[in-house]
Design a protein around this nucleic acid. Structure first.
Length: 591
DNA sequence: TTCTCACTCTCATAACACAT
DNA sequence: ATGTGTTATGAGAGTGAGAA
């Protein structure tokens, strides 16, 4: 390998993101020749502290060597076709579904025989496992075999080394009986265990399971594709477990802050809300205005009543338009627009090879994300009944129903809207995310520009795919536009709440100024409106209001508004809702 | 700075339906 | 009967924020 030290460093940067290690490479002047000699985990330990990095290094090094070798071969003799190349080209020509059965069968048989042939050629008659790190050898010598039990590091390392060897050395993803036997035997021999059937089977199983997972990382490999098309049928596999009787948890972090109203106003709002429920013949514009005015009543109800009651009390939630309107008011996001803008961008970043082409882009996106995070799509999108109480899209007869707590909430024919509504559910019902649902967290973070609910694996993907979670500035500009247009269009007294959301003084001020103008405007004329009276400036302690009005549990969040915001924001206190402040929500991450 | 704790992530494996 | 893809699950490993 004729690499210079600098070239090696560049190569190393492609898979290790650690400046200290990179600088060690420079320090020790590691060039191509040195690299070629670093063929064991022990030699890698000097450079990489973590086992994971050591293994990654070895695998990348293997790849590099392979590329070099094939380059060499093809440059010497371009007419010689290796079996690998051959079979892969034959499968890439093969159309997926609509070729005639006979051809397909021929092809398959042909391919299978090739696969068999190939592995027979490559795999030795007696398998010898690669050199193990000293620490393992020492444990074997010392007879500390308990360290090779399930969940122990030694077992992991050993299995990892063997599978790595099988894949990279022999291009073997599906060993035959005989080969598994050889592999198991080799491991038992190495461990100096009695050569019993059981012992061999145990390690064979471990290697087999590991290979299974490795296949996931090599979906594009010919053999893997072949087996997948052979066995992967819809409906096969363990049935998805249904979380019957469970309820999607509400998340305090998603709660919007409520300011309290005096009794009269609140009653008034409740009456209005009731009229909204009972009177189905309201003209659309006044209905919309009523809906906007009564956000407070609904927010409050959602805190302490189950989904079914909410839906009964506020049938407006069956209407996508009103849902989107509420999201716009409470989150400052025009979901319809944002979703339509983000889906193509995200899809493009997530998809490397065409996938799920029969689905519409939003569904495609859900599937791709689920595949990325190895989640089951069924928990987010299905054709029958939802398996979890968390928001689920159910696609039946070209209509997509959005379910929460196993209750159909709202339906739409537009897949874009469906995805938007799915995300809206988390905002509207202030729902927690299910602990491992990473796909939906990512989507939520993108559309609401809210990184609070991301986990590390999601952040890794965001970084890897260079996904842009809207910067705060963008978001504020977006919400400002929303708030202004909103008010211009409807002339309603409902003002958008500004986002006292980050600490950036200037931008906060900017927003406040914008709303102040609107407020002043409103104050001049608001006497004639039945709008909910905002808290009056002089009333410092809303807690002193009659108890019926302050049923809100005192949250730690409240303090912030009491102390800090009171001064700066009091002029813009006409806003009814306020985003939960970032400091307080930072306390604990919840999953 | 180091330590502790609570959380998430990863791994090995079980359970299931289907194919051979 | 065995192998495969699939999802579920418990336990160890890993990680990061707050405490000391």
């Amino acid at each position: 390998m004729n690499f210079s030290c600098d070239e090696v460093v560049e190569w190393c940067k492609s898979f290790i993101n650690d400046d200290i290690i990179i600088s060690r490479f420079k320090e020790l002047e590691i060039d191509g020749e040195t690299l070629a000699l670093m063929d064991s985990i022990d030699k890698a330990t000097t450079l990489f502290p973590k086992l994971k990095q050591q293994l990654l290094f070895l695998s990348e090094r293997e790849k590099l060597l392979k590329v070099q070798k094939t380059d060499l071969i093809s440059s010497i003799d371009s007419s010689s076709i290796t079996s690998t190349n051959f079979s892969s080209s034959s499968s890439s020509i093969k159309p997926a579904a609509n070729c005639s059965t006979d051809d397909y069968m021929d092809d398959r048989v042909f391919e299978e025989s090739l696969v068999k042939q190939k592995s027979n050629i490559l795999f030795p008659i007696e398998y010898i496992i690669p050199a193990l790190p000293d620490s393992l050898l020492q444990d074997i010598e010392a007879g500390a075999l308990d360290k090779f039990g399930p969940h122990h590091t030694n077992r992991q390392v050993l299995v990892d080394i063997v599978t790595h060897d099988l894949i990279n050395q022999y291009d073997l993803f599906y060993p035959t009986h005989k080969q598994f036997d050889l592999i198991g035997t080799a491991i038992i021999r190495q461990l100096k265990l009695p050569m019993t059937r059981d012992n061999i089977a145990i390690w064979k199983d471990a290697v087999q399971t590991k290979l299974k997972r490795k296949r996931l990382q090599h979906r594009d490999h010919v053999d893997v594709k072949h087996h997948q098309s052979k066995y992967s049928k819809s409906g096969s596999g363990r049935p998805v477990k249904r979380m019957i009787g469970e309820v999607a948890q509400r998340d305090r972090q998603k709660q919007l802050m409520l300011l309290n109203y005096d009794a009269d106003t609140f009653n008034d709002l409740q009456l209005k809300s009731k009229s909204l429920k009972d009177n189905s013949q309201i003209e659309f514009n006044s209905l919309l205005n009523l809906w906007k005015e009564t956000v407070y009543v609904r927010r409050k109800a959602i805190r302490d009543r189950p989904t079914s009651e909410i839906l009964e009390g506020f049938p407006g939630y069956k209407d996508p338009v009103l849902i989107f309107e509420e999201v716009k008011i409470s989150m400052g996001v025009d979901l319809r627009v944002v979703v339509r803008r983000q889906i193509p961008i995200l899809l493009q970043k997530m998809i490397t090879t065409p996938a799920f082409i029969t689905d519409s882009p939003p569904i495609q996106l859900i599937r791709v994300l689920c595949r990325q995070f190895e989640e089951t799509v069924h928990h987010t999108y299905c054709n029958t009944t939802p398996s979890t109480p968390y928001p689920t899209l159910v696609f039946v007869d070209h209509i997509i129903h959005v379910y929460v707590d196993f209750i159909p909430i709202v339906s739409t024919t537009s897949p874009d809207d469906a995805l938007a509504l799915l995300l809206a559910m988390y905002a509207i019902f202030e729902l927690n995310f299910h602990k491992n649902s990473r796909s939906i967290r990512l989507l939520y973070a993108i559309v609401f520009a809210d990184k609070r609910f991301l986990s590390n694996t999601i952040r890794d993907v965001i970084q890897e795919k260079q996904i842009d979670i809207y910067s705060e500035l963008n978001r504020q500009q977006l919400t400002e536009i929303n708030s202004i247009t909103n008010n211009l269009v409807t002339e309603s007294s409902t003002t958008e709440q500004p986002h006292c959301y980050n600490d950036n003084k200037s931008s906060v001020n900017m927003v406040i100024n914008a709303t102040e103008i609107l407020n002043n405007n409103e104050n001049a004329t608001s006497a004639s409106f039945d709008s909910p009276a905002p808290i009056v400036k002089g009333r410092k302690r809303p807690q002193k209001l009659p108890k019926t009005l302050t049923t809100e549990k005192p949250m730690p969040i409240d303090h912030d508004s009491d102390h800090e915001n009171q001064n700066d924001c009091s002029s813009s206190m006409s806003k009814k809702l306020q985003r939960v402040d970032k400091h307080s929500s930072k306390k604990k991450r919840r999953y």
